[in-house]
Amino acid sequence: MADKPRLRIPETANKGDVIQIKTLVAHPMENGFRKDDNGKTIPRKIINKFVCTFGGKEVFRADLEPAIAANPYFEFTVKVDESGTFAFAWVDDDGTVTTAEQSITVT
């Protein structure tokens, strides 16, 4: 499962600003092509979905495939018009969901 989500979001912004969000989560993103020491294929286990919402509304979503590098990293932008909370969710192949939250004050 995903671990230690890290977020980089400005704490404050002016109304109408386009801010940049950077996220990183610890996960091996086992791609299902690698073999272990005995030559057996290691089964696929990846984060297959990442969602960011602001005030409950989806602002960004990614469908991940095995070609996303380990410890999935994303950068994207959001235009903020009011203060609120960003919520993030990473969904694992095994169904576990890792979440994180951070608020922004918009003046």
């Binding site: 386009v18 791609n31 092509f33 602001f54 509304k57 989806e58 602002v59 960004f60 979503r61 990614a62 469908d63 991940l64 495939e65 095995p66 070609a67 996303i68 590098a69 999935p72 990293y73 994303f74 950068e75 994207f76 932008t77 959001v78 235009k79």
Partner: peptide, 28 residues
């Protein structure tokens, strides 16, 4: 990615709330 065992890498879904169509990640 044309030369990967699976050609699909990632799909991004954006909304007008993004402000700019700019994304970045790290791929294999």
């Amino acid at each position: 990615a044309g030369g990967n065992p699976n050609p699909g890498v990632v799909g991004f879904h954006l909304t007008p709330m993004a402000g700019r169509a700019e994304v970045a990640t790290r791929i294999r």
